[in-house]
Design a protein around this nucleic acid. Structure first.
Lengths: 194, 194
DNA sequence: TAAATACCTAAACGTTTGTTTAGTTTAATG
DNA sequence: CATTAAACTAAACAAACGTTTAGGTATTTA
């Protein structure tokens, strides 16, 4: 009776983090609603039963996909934190973000921004929490960088940080429909205002 | 036999442009996919049969809703065209746009931008055509205004017009999740260097 | 008032949705 | 090698989707 937990009968034939990343790519391209379990089965290469036993339901799988996305883009944030060129780092961050948005020729935008838009009218606490976490974190990072200019007042810093978050938001949306040249012009002009 | 077309048996108990506006508001709030025929029936106050006989199908109703949206926001464009304060007019246009986006306390964004996002991955010629029409028209209007400054070079004008279209795009997305104060700061900063 | 026909109600259509369940296969343990 | 339990396959589930159809109602014209 008590030993049951220790008995391994058969190992999973897939790694959860591997199939989650595949699911994430599908959600990224199509959004939550427009991605069906049938599509997920095919893309992930495992059966519906396996999906449900590993992630509970579609919603749980989506939450795990968001985490997978964060892991995927984490290297940008690391590079961002480890550099010390002030505002220039933020611009670099913007360019890196756009490159991810246009990954592999697809115009998928940013999964977080897409999710923000798709869920903004719904009331989903778990998703909202993930979103707020992401956005607040981003804002804090911008504030830190802006503080490297000692001449700036606190109020100016907050205003500029907010400006940058919105610009990033808009950029992610624009990256789905605009050309590379248009995006580049947009970024350059955005930073002329700082 | 030949007179059948002239005989009016019973008049419609609804006006098409009236129920379309109601449908438009629902699409505006929820997007195309997330709005079901059941919801539309309830909101429009007419039966499914009536919807199908008037608009063909859900897609046809959505296209009519887009046109209804254009009629609704048209007064902003008229005010924009009839004023002669150059760049200041564009800023005014941005503020007016945001006010519509936040209509009645709801944070619905801009129907065109929302649609742009929802349909960007699909291949829907009719929708794409409507979108491009709207966006190109907007860009042309911006270009006209920017030309009122005779000192500006042609290349600068094009670059700035493009910048403004993307900013408008981002603003519409941001208006769904950001506060009025944040939006205002964002607009002011956007126009700082034009 | 009677005939004609467009409109409306309401039920049903076939798919597809997310989710569950029963039955089979696989592999680790005693 | 037999036992055991987890992981697999595949079929079925109810509910909701967009769409269609049949039958009753209402109103205009002659």
């Amino acid at each position: 009776m008590y030993l049951l937990l220790e008995i391994m009968a058969r190992k999973k034939q897939y790694q959860e983090d591997v199939v989650v990343e595949k699911a994430m790519n599908l959600f990224w391209r199509n959004g939550f609603e427009a991605t069906s379990m049938q599509m997920l089965e095919k893309e992930m290469g495992i059966n519906k039963f396996s999906i449900y036993s590993s992630f509970g339901n579609k919603h749980g799988l989506f939450l795990e996909s968001l985490k997978s996305y964060k892991r995927k883009v984490n290297f940008i944030f690391e590079a961002f934190k480890n550099s010390n060129n002030g505002i220039e780092d933020i611009k670099e961050f913007f360019y890196n973000s756009v490159n991810i948005c246009k990954e592999a020729g697809n115009q998928k935008g940013c999964l977080v921004t897409n999710t923000y838009n798709e869920f903004s009218e719904k009331e989903d606490e778990q998703i909202q929490e993930q979103m707020n976490l992401f956005m607040n974190n981003l804002k804090e990072l911008f504030i830190d960088k802006l503080k490297s200019d000692a001449n700036k007042e606190e109020a100016t810093i907050l205003k500029q940080a907010n400006y940058l978050v919105l610009a990033k938001h808009g950029l992610a949306a624009a990256s789905r429909v605009n050309s590379e040249k248009e995006i580049e012009d947009y970024i350059e002009m955005t930073f002329q205002n700082l």
